[in-house]
């Protein structure tokens, strides 16, 4: 009389908007995918138009009603430098261990890609985190949790516009104010916005925010 549950059957849940009905899982993935594509665009990677303007409809068309995370993998490159490529992986596991990461890095090695973003369902094991840290010389692997990417935080009303400065612009700024790098206001490398832009230590971000007193105000923060 009793059976063990098999978690394949979908439960339909109307999100109450948009007209298109996605399963909760698919709608979650769609939102994450959408944020990832806008993140890549803002980081200056070439992102196809289809990806940038994806609707729930086209998402189901392309990835099916029950999209597999494997199929979502993205590979993008910078417009000026085709060797500067980046992978976005969506590992299936709830908790990503060393082994799946090993497989992914092997793939990166094969295709000679040095950057990657992991979009995690749940969490990453401490060992895996350590492994990623150790590899940071040859591979730069960032990891985001899925819940963090449900909403594009740079679109949030409280978050002003951030622009990452080039090395030249940074030197010019330091010269203008006669500053050492450490004398700039800071932003932490693990700050949500800094992670969104994939900022490295020493990079400077220009922040343009609306101001109550001046209308518009420009400030800078260095990632330290």
């Amino acid at each position: 009389m009793m059976e063990v549950d098999t978690p394949t059957e979908p439960t339909n849940f109307n999100r109450g908007g948009g007209g298109v009905t996605l399963t909760p899982e698919a709608s979650r993935l769609f939102r994450v995918y959408k944020t990832v594509s806008s993140m890549l665009t803002k980081r200056g990677y070439m992102v196809s138009r289809e990806m940038r303007e994806m609707t729930p409809m086209s998402f189901t068309e392309r990835f099916g009603e029950f999209p597999s995370r494997e199929g979502l993998t993205i590979l993008v490159e910078k417009p000026d430098d085709s060797t500067n490529q980046l992978f976005v992986f969506f590992p299936e596991d709830e908790k990503v261990g060393v082994k799946p990461i090993k497989i992914l890095t092997d793939r990166m090695k094969d295709e000679q890609v040095s950057n990657a973003i992991l979009v995690l369902r749940g969490d990453i094991t401490p060992f895996a985190k350590q492994a990623v840290m150790e590899m940071s010389d040859s591979f730069r692997i960032e990891h985001f949790k899925e819940p963090e990417l449900l909403v594009d935080i740079t679109q949030h009303t409280l978050v002003p516009e951030h622009l990452v400065l080039s090395q030249n612009e940074k030197q010019e700024l330091l010269k203008r104010y006669r500053l050492r790098e450490t004398q700039l206001p800071r932003i932490q490398p693990n700050d949500p916005v800094a992670r969104y832009y994939g900022m490295k230590r020493g990079q400077v971000v220009k922040i343009i925010r609306p101001s109550e007193t001046a209308g518009r105000y420009v400030t800078y923060r260095v990632c330290l």
């Binding site: 935080i153 949030h156 409280l158 978050v159 951030h162 932003i187 949500p192 916005v193 800094a194 925010r209």
Partner: peptide, 10 residues
């Protein structure tokens, strides 16, 4: 933690 220092500042 969710939106960054700039948002916290505001």
């Amino acid at each position: 933690q969710t939106l960054g220092v700039e948002a916290a500042r505001t």
